[in-house]
Simulated scan of single mutants.
Amino acid sequence: MRYTTRETTFRNADGTFNTTSELIFTPTLQDHRTIFTCQVYHLTSKEQVIKRIILTVNYGPELVIHYRTSDSDVFLPLLKNFIYVEHQSFLELNCTADSNPASIVIWLKKFWARRGGIQLVAGVSSSILKKMNVDHSDSGDYICRAHNGYDSKESALTISLTSDFGSSFPVRSITMPIFVVSITLMLIWCCKRKGWCGPCNSGNSKQNEHRGRSGECSTAEDVDVQKKITTSEL
């Protein structure tokens, strides 16, 4: 049980009584701005005595990031720590900090050569990062950081551009290396398959002669090599 009460009553020297009632609990974020009411009843009083108290709870920031990809759209909660956007598209990120007192909220972009990142925009209780035309230079890791006198929090986010092939892979970071490796492997396979490379086309015919059918060269190629060796010996 979150709330407990404790009441004490003692008699004064003049015969009157004092009664005290205590409400005991541990405040949480949900208790901020909660109204508590103390009511006093007595047989000799025509009206009850009512005292209201508004509770103020001080706490550190809790971050929530919303986004939209059009200036006319409504903001949606960002449920993951990454987002894919089209090249030259619109992107707006709103980082909000729920705290008391209000927090300073900062957007930063991380750079490997700059410890802690570079500050982009800042605000009180919230900060908006807007990109009118997302470019390749806008992709990367971002941080929303908030702090007040009680605590500090940060949330990381990665912005990636969708590939030109229509998939959701980041451009130039994943698609291009896979493409290059695939073409390279295909060329090597064709080279070996057609006999364009390898020991069959090397200049050392003597080694090819002794390789025979156990090597990578075909029988027809061995016959051609043998003819060349015989002609040169004559």
Rank of each mutant, 00 (worst) to 15 (best):
T4M: 05
T8F: 07
T8L: 11
F10W: 12
N18C: 07
T19I: 06
S21Q: 05
E22G: 01
I24P: 13
T26E: 05
T28M: 08
L29Y: 12
D31F: 05
H32Q: 06
R33E: 06
T34G: 07
T37M: 08
Y41D: 11
L43H: 03
L43Q: 09
S45N: 13
Q48E: 13
K51Y: 14
I54R: 15
T56R: 12
Y59M: 05
L63H: 11
L63I: 15
I65F: 07
D73L: 01
F75Y: 15
P77T: 10
L78T: 06
N81W: 02
E86Q: 15
T96I: 11
T96L: 04
S99Y: 01
A102Q: 14
V105N: 00
L108Q: 13
W112P: 05
R114M: 05
R115M: 07
G117K: 01
I118M: 04
Q119L: 05
L120R: 06
L120Q: 01
K130R: 15
K130M: 10
Y142D: 02
I143G: 00
R145K: 15
A146R: 14
S155F: 03
S160N: 13
L161Y: 03
L161V: 04
L161R: 01
S163Y: 03
S168M: 02
F169Q: 05
V171A: 12
R172V: 00
R172M: 06
T175E: 12
V180R: 08
V181G: 06
V181Q: 05
I183M: 04
T184Y: 10
I188R: 05
K194G: 01
G198K: 14
P199W: 04
P199Q: 04
H210I: 15
R211M: 13
G212R: 14
R213H: 09
S214Q: 09
C217T: 03
S218M: 10
A220Q: 15
D222S: 04
D222M: 06
V223M: 11
Q226H: 09
Q226F: 03
K227G: 10
I229G: 11
L234W: 10
L234Y: 08
